[in-house]
Design a protein around this nucleic acid. Structure first.
Length: 739
DNA sequence: TACCAGACTATTTTT
DNA sequence: TAGTCTGGTA
């Protein structure tokens, strides 16, 4: 067994302490770039070298990619043993636990995991069946509420007890049906994985003790982003040996919208009064200027433990700021800058990352990259597994694996068209209901066929035969033969081939790519080769997981996806009020604080160079908007910023919320009047400034999110508190008044 | 039943 | 702006 000694001498004293900490609960507050990953890998490697069996160590990471990389690093240190460490995301860990021991709470081990869109179609169906209008009661918001309930470990019954408002009572009913339907389909949604795993530990003493005994050490990374169910699970699993190591940074908590709760970090010390606290505040990644800039943004947060990273690194380059006319100019500025740096040999494409707040922003920048033939890697956007043809094939595989999976069955029963319309499906539903059988069995039943037309019967027979043959083919394990069978026998391939459009061509290529994926999966010794495991892997991949190694291309991704990564040079785009910070956050202090942390995360990704760009004018939802530049830019001390060559910077933005500090002329000055102020070029003056408080006679007091020109008038978007939410209104009619 | 066109509407971040 | 949905028609 190859084991190399750890060079513990190269660690700073705090890191050293964190690595060698013997036992008992520890919380490591690890600032950005403080060598956190190194500490965790060393700690685990050391545990193994000191004799802890790897399979008795559990390490939870935020993404599958992080888990994979960490395992590889540990493998470098301790060799093959690293393969036996339990390592993965909370979700994949829970799937594994439930697959192995879910029977104890009545779970079938063949369960499938429903993703976002499957949840939506299920919720929609329930809302309709309950007689609601799916426009008045929106599936997404209902699902959001159900998700929050599950994160808080509230069962439908418990939720019902607490439900008071009309909305909550409505959700309560839907939540009940939703769970019923999931159970009938032998399916779990993302939140169920956690919810059920906690229930499994709570309810089955045997299982609980099995895992509590097993895990001598439990480590949780990105602890600032755990929700209550994850907190509980980590506690449950570590409660016997009490060797729980949690690592996080409250300044980097950016998943509050997903139920993550930073205050759980505080609770850790309450629940574990004997816990050690180790703070890593030396940054090894960034220049002083970058750290100074990032700190000047995040320090405005009220709910924050004041702390400051320091570094031995030099001050480095100034932070570059670029203002452009439109979002397309902004994209071109980014591309030009990158090309210049590459041409002069200072950097290669792979050194750059371009980060933005929302995926929608990626379009302009991607077009610019394509236009200039700059190699780039887009992370996220429409995921491979979200493409229609891929989802269709995966749905076929799911039905083969688990014929109770009704949502997948509905998806493919008539794809490609085989004369099984809504009429036939309703009949099958009724038949299934009356016979107490599953929808698939209803279709497969000869009795049922009598009521249908010849054509439909033929279609159903073809379909059920395809599935049944698939079940047989799936028996030995490998996925590829099953997939190929389905593509062929379903008529899916034939249909696409007959279609000579470019789109069909692209779909065919994607399907070929899927075959490549399964072929690779089948031959990878790390995998358990059966349909169930494959489907689970597919359900739990994230955008960042699919990012190809360190290929030489500019990485394009959202700020959220960039968490945990670092790059020599980073661009943050769209630094405009309403874009970043996002308009949805403008009305809420806590959400604004999260935006600040997000900015902090983005800025601290950069090692050497940081560029912040914004556009004076941006089309959003097909309309030109004039957003003032982001308050985050104005937070930066002026001695650490510089203006990008070839850009102008208005001395003050188009409209600043009153009282907000302004960026003053830089260095030699002279740029302030270099270009016509944009209100002139637009020929229009907005009635309000973004961020200003206004009152409406019906909705009360709100905050202006955006102003857009309308002939002789203005369209004002205002965020009102509570259920009213965001409203767009015409000024002459709404008669908003500033307050 | 299938397809098309036009209307409509909703715009964050993701395991 | 673009994606989704609905309703009408072939």
């Amino acid at each position: 067994m190859s084991t190399i000694p750890l060079d513990l001498d190269t660690l700073n004293p705090r890191q050293h302490e964190a690595v060698v900490h013997e036992g008992g609960p520890v919380m490591i507050i690890a600032g950005a770039g403080s060598g956190k990953t190194r500490v965790i890998t060393y700690r685990i490697a050391r545990l193994i070298q000191e004799g802890t069996p790897p399979w008795r160590i559990l390490a939870v990471t935020f993404t599958n990619k992080a888990a994979k990389e960490m395992r590889e690093r540990i493998e470098h240190l301790v060799g093959d043993q690293a393969k036996d460490i339990w390592m993965g995301t909370f979700h994949s860990l829970c799937a594994r636990l439930l697959r192995m021991d879910g029977m104890a709470i009545g779970l079938d081990r063949n369960f499938v995991i429903y993703d976002d869109s499957e949840q939506v179609s299920l919720a929609k169906d329930i809302i309709k069946k309950r007689g609601f209008d799916d426009k008045a009661i929106q599936p997404r918001s209902v699902l959001g509420e159900i998700s929050r309930a599950k994160e808080q470990l509230l069962s439908p019954e418990k939720y019902e007890e607490r439900a008071s408002s009309f909305f909550e009572r409505t959700v309560s009913g839907i939540y009940k049906d939703y769970q019923k339907r999931l159970t009938a389909a032998n399916a779990l949604d993302f939140d169920d994985l956690l919810f059920k795993a906690v229930r499994l530990m709570d309810e089955s003493q045997v299982v609980r003790e099995k895992y509590q005994d097993k895990f001598l050490h439990v480590l949780v990374d990105e602890y600032q982003d755990v929700n209550l169910s994850q907190y509980r699970l980590a506690d449950l699993l570590s409660s016997k040996h009490r060797n729980l190591t949690v690592v996080g940074d409250d300044d980097q908590s950016i998943y509050g919208w997903r139920g993550a709760d930073v205050s759980l970090m505080m609770r850790f010390s309450v629940d574990h009064p004997d816990a050690n606290l180790i703070t890593l505040d030396q940054n090894y990644r960034s220049t002083q200027n970058i750290l100074k800039g990032a700190h000047s943004v995040v320090r405005h947060n009220r709910t924050r433990n004041d702390k400051k990273l320091w570094t031995d690194n030099g001050s480095g380059e100034l932070i570059s700021i670029g203002e452009t006319g439109t979002e397309n100019d902004e994209a071109r500025l980014v591309v030009d800058t990158i090309m210049r740096e590459v041409r002069t040999g200072r950097r290669s494409y792979g050194d750059f990352a371009v980060l933005y707040r929302t995926n929608a922003q990626s379009r302009a920048i991607e077009e610019a990259f394509l236009g200039h033939q700059v190699p780039h890697i887009l992370v996220g956007g429409t995921r491979f597994y979200d493409r229609k043809e891929i989802k269709d094939m995966v749905a076929y595989l799911r039905v083969i694996w688990n014929s109770a999976d009704e949502i997948s069955l509905r998806r493919v029963i008539n794809t490609p068209a085989r004369a099984i319309g809504p009429g036939a499906i309703t009949k099958a539903e009724q038949f299934a209901e009356s016979q107490g059988i599953s929808l698939f069995d209803a279709f497969a039943s000869p009795t049922f066929e009598q009521e249908l037309t010849k054509k439909t019967v033929q279609g159903i027979r073809n379909f059920t035969k395809t599935i049944e043959d698939g079940i047989e083919l799936a028996e030995p394990g490998p996925i590829t033969p099953v997939l190929k069978h389905v593509m062929q026998a379903s008529g899916y391939l034939d249909e696409l081939r007959a279609d000579r459009t470019e789109e069909a061509q692209a779909r065919l290529e994607n399907l070929q790519e899927l075959v490549n994926v399964t072929a690779q999966y089948d031959t990878d010794p790390a995998n358990e080769v059966n349909l169930g495991s494959f489907l689970e892997t597919v359900a739990l991949v994230s955008d960042i997981d699919t990012m190809k190694g360190n290929g030489d291309g500019v990485k394009l991704m959202t700020l959220h996806s960039s968490k945990g990564l670092e790059f020599p040079a980073v661009f943050l785009m769209g630094l405009e009020e309403g874009v970043f910070p996002h308009s949805r956050a403008l009305g809420s202090d806590s959400e604004l604080e999260e935006e600040r942390r997000l900015c902090y995360v983005g800025m601290t990704r950069a090692r050497e160079a940081l560029y912040l760009t914004y556009a004076q004018r941006r089309s959003q939802y097909g309309q030109a908007n004039f957003n003032p530049r982001s308050r985050f830019i104005d937070d930066l001390p002026r001695e650490i910023v510089d203006q990008m060559p070839g850009t102008t910077m208005s001395a003050q933005s188009f409209s600043r919320p009153s009282g907000t500090p302004r960026l003053e002329p830089l260095r030699t000055g002279g740029y302030a009047v270099a270009e016509e102020p944009r209100e002139k070029s637009a020929g229009w003056t907005p009635p309000f400034t973004v961020g200003q408080k206004v009152s409406h006679r019906k909705f009360g007091i709100g905050i202006v999110v955006a102003c857009a020109p309308l002939k002789n008038d203005a369209e004002v978007t205002v965020a009102f508190p509570g259920a009213t939410g965001i409203k767009k209104m015409v000024q002459s009619l709404a008669k908003l008044e500033s307050v």
